[in-house]
Design a protein around this nucleic acid. Structure first.
Lengths: 123, 123
DNA sequence: ATGCTTTATAGGAGTTGACTTATATAAGCG
DNA sequence: CGCTTATATAAGTCAACTCCTATAAAGCAT
């Protein structure tokens, strides 16, 4: 399953958000998700499986508990794919910023179209 | 349809990649996609529709042609969602870089877990 | 061992989504 | 106008995904 497919599901995105705050047990994740989405324990378990098998999380056992944590591999892939579009909205401020932040890839791709100079209600 | 769902389809991702190089007519896109994926003209048209209706592209008519171009709205949303995870792999080099590149959001979210200090085979 | 907890799997139902072929709409051209 | 080109829509099929209930597996505690 492709990274973007995995992220296509709102439950899985939410699980990742939870894990972004730190390692969580399957049970803890299930509790939160159950409450927010009203789905069953097996449903959550299946989402955890997808995340696990597609590399978005790591798991370690601790007794009968399974502790899940974010693994960044696929997220970086997604980030990398997005890279080619960033020029469309970073035109004005990528002076020296992007260079550092992105590990000096990017650049070079400056010849896009002018877009519509959207102002971006960014926060 | 949520942005991530839209990007879940490989054909749509490819269409966006093509449009990232500049405005293209429906016909031009269809030609490329047909060749790469072997799907019909209506199939491509439907993908264009999804991209259009979910805000990933703009269209303008020129005679009987429809010229599609990337619109960045949803892509920025995706980028913003990813934001919370970037700390997991940018730990070492977000000195002044990210600040500029990301329009000074980020920061503040520094208290994650140490992850496993992956080195990232970043190009 | 028995039983309780924690998590995962199996099997099946309902929904959604991505194709296909056929056709509609609309502009350009003889 | 009738014909061709460019693109979109309609209707139907098929596969894939997500959920549910039921159940299994595995560690912990009495």
């Amino acid at each position: 399953m492709h990274a973007f497919d995995v992220l296509g599901d709102p439950v899985r995105r939410r699980i990742l958000e939870l894990l972004a705050e730190g390692e969580r047990s399957s049970g803890e994740v299930t509790a939160s998700i159950r409450e927010e989405f009203g789905i069953s324990q097996p449903a959550v378990s299946q989402h955890l499986r997808v995340l696990r098998e597609s590399g978005f999380t790591t798991v370690r056992a601790e007794g009968t508990r399974r502790l899940y944590a974010v693994d960044t591999g696929p997220l970086q892939e997604v980030d990398a794919w997005l890279e080619r579009f960033r020029g469309f909205w970073e035109q004005r401020l990528d002076a020296l910023g992007t260079e550092l932040a992105r590990g000096k890839r990017a650049r070079r791709r400056s010849g896009q179209r002018d877009s519509k100079s959207r102002e971006s209600s960014d926060e």
